[in-house]
Simulated scan of single mutants.
Amino acid sequence: MQVAQQQALRNRMPLPSFEESVPLMISFAPNWPLRTVIFRVLGTALVIGAAAMWFMPGSNLSAETALMKLGVSLFFFFSGLALLMIHHQDNQPDAYFDPIRRELRVLQKNNRGRPQTVLRRSYDSLGSARFNEHYLEICDVDGTILMRLPIESAEIRHALRMQLSGLVNISV
């Protein structure tokens, strides 16, 4: 019964035009910035260590030692590269706020680099939105945090607040 009432209410509300409200896309940020810095420092050290291993003086270059040195340096290089790329900006999903369809979509790049929808929620199914000075927290109906998105400017915060007002409960 409640779903039918929401559908009737949605059908009575005029759809916003594209000129009035524009779609917004916000990228997720890593949860722990300190962990990102530690991974980058360790990754850089491993990549430099892989190259520096060949310039260390006093090592004999027998065939067995050179093969072992090659294996260790390749392991250091690829491990360092993995640590450098683990929280790269291109690997982070994007949150797309669509005012025409009145929905929030989370887009993740697939293997070919094209965005793919991994989550789609209508504004009616969201519990609330909490605006902070630097973050937007989207909460579910039961109050659990679905996502925390960084907001770079006051203009984006204002545009999101205007887009979500009347459709999602906005708490301060």
Rank of each mutant, 00 (worst) to 15 (best):
I38F: 05
G43D: 07
L24K: 13
G58K: 12
Y96H: 03
D98N: 05
E20N: 09
E103A: 14
G113L: 04
P16E: 09
R102S: 10
L74I: 02
N11L: 15
S171L: 14
D142H: 03
F131K: 01
R157L: 07
D140S: 09
N11P: 12
S165L: 04
M56G: 15
N91H: 13
E137W: 05
L126M: 05
V168D: 01
N111V: 14
I38L: 07
Y96W: 09
A52D: 05
H158E: 12
F55Y: 05
G43A: 06
L67N: 04
E103P: 10
F77R: 02
T117M: 13
L74C: 06
S27E: 07
Q5F: 14
H134G: 10
E133W: 13
D98G: 03
L81A: 03
R114T: 08
L104I: 12
F28Y: 03
L24V: 13
T36S: 08
S59N: 09
I138M: 02
L164I: 03
L160D: 06
V41A: 15
V47M: 09
V22G: 12
R10F: 05
Y135D: 15
I38Y: 06
T36D: 08
Q7C: 11
C139V: 06
L146R: 01
M56C: 14
I170A: 00
F76L: 11
L164W: 04
V106M: 01
F76P: 11
L9Q: 11
